[in-house]
Amino acid sequence: MLRRTAVLVAGVFLVAGCSSGQQAAQNRQGQAGFVSGNGNVSVFAAADRKTAPELTGKTLDDKTWTLSEQKGKVVVLNVWGSWCPPCRKEAPELVAAAKELGPSVQFVGLNTRDLDPAPAKKFVQEFGVQYPNVYDPNGRALLRFRGQISPAAIPTTLVIDKFGKVAGRVVGEVTKQTLLGMVAEAK
């Protein structure tokens, strides 16, 4: 029985991804409840798409950003935290996709659970992120997406069509190629 319990506990740590040993240190900084996704991609037919909730907030450079002002453009919304290893791994992919797609597609980050904006600003600078990033330290903006984004699954990326409806979702790390395909499907 003891051996089965040890195997079960070991399996939980393997499945939990970023909520393993590094997570314990992160929990002390306020990032409790983080679970990395598995990269599962969902694409929704136009008839099955649900409207994205309103997202308005201050960006890391202290400007106001509003999702509803983006109607007519495809929007790629990436939920991330500077403390999240998969977010760091996917950042160059997002930057490359944003560069390739250009201004016809609006990329926006939703930075969550960075209680101090300094690490988030450093992340943006380190990876050369040029698109806006809404600062959401307490996760309130993220909670508006309940049912579309699990508040615990970081990173998650949504592709929102030009009508403001969720056309696709990646729970976990996203690649440039996946984003390019999802955006093409959303147009």
Rank of each mutant, 00 (worst) to 15 (best):
R3Q: 13
T5C: 15
L8Q: 11
V9Y: 01
V9N: 04
F13D: 09
L14F: 14
L14Q: 10
A16F: 10
C18E: 14
G21Q: 11
G21I: 14
Q23H: 14
A24M: 15
A24K: 13
Q26N: 15
Q26E: 15
R28L: 15
G30A: 05
Q31P: 09
A32D: 14
V35W: 08
G37E: 04
N38P: 06
N38D: 13
N38K: 15
G39S: 05
N40W: 11
V41N: 07
V43N: 09
F44G: 02
A45K: 11
A45R: 11
A46R: 12
A47R: 01
D48N: 12
D48K: 09
D48Y: 06
R49N: 03
K50F: 06
T51E: 12
P53K: 01
T56Y: 00
G57Y: 04
G57T: 08
T59K: 02
L60H: 04
L60D: 06
D61L: 00
D61Y: 02
D62E: 15
D62F: 11
D62L: 13
K63A: 14
T64A: 11
T64E: 13
T64R: 03
S68Q: 11
Q70L: 07
Q70S: 12
G72A: 07
V75Y: 09
V75Q: 01
V76C: 07
V76R: 04
V79S: 00
V79I: 12
W80P: 04
W83T: 09
C84Y: 06
C84H: 03
P85L: 07
P86V: 06
C87H: 00
P92V: 07
L94N: 00
L94Q: 06
V95H: 08
A96G: 03
A97R: 09
A97G: 01
A98Q: 12
A98E: 12
K99M: 02
E100M: 10
G102I: 00
S104F: 01
G109P: 07
L110E: 01
T112M: 02
R113N: 11
D114S: 09
P117S: 08
P117E: 10
A118H: 04
A118R: 05
P119Q: 05
A120T: 04
K121C: 05
K122H: 14
K122D: 15
K122C: 11
F123K: 04
V124K: 06
Q130T: 14
Q130S: 14
P132T: 06
Y135E: 05
D136R: 01
P137V: 01
N138Q: 14
G139D: 00
A141V: 13
F145P: 02
G147N: 05
G147A: 10
S150C: 02
P151E: 10
P151C: 02
A152I: 13
A153H: 10
A153E: 11
A153M: 13
I154C: 08
I154F: 08
P155H: 04
T157A: 05
L158F: 00
D161V: 05
D161P: 02
D161F: 03
K162D: 15
F163C: 12
F163H: 14
G164K: 00
K165N: 12
V166E: 07
G168Y: 08
R169P: 03
R169G: 00
R169I: 09
V170Q: 07
V170M: 02
G172Q: 03
G172A: 10
E173K: 09
V174H: 05
T175D: 01
K176F: 06
L179M: 05
G181N: 11
E185D: 13
E185C: 06
A186P: 07
K187L: 00
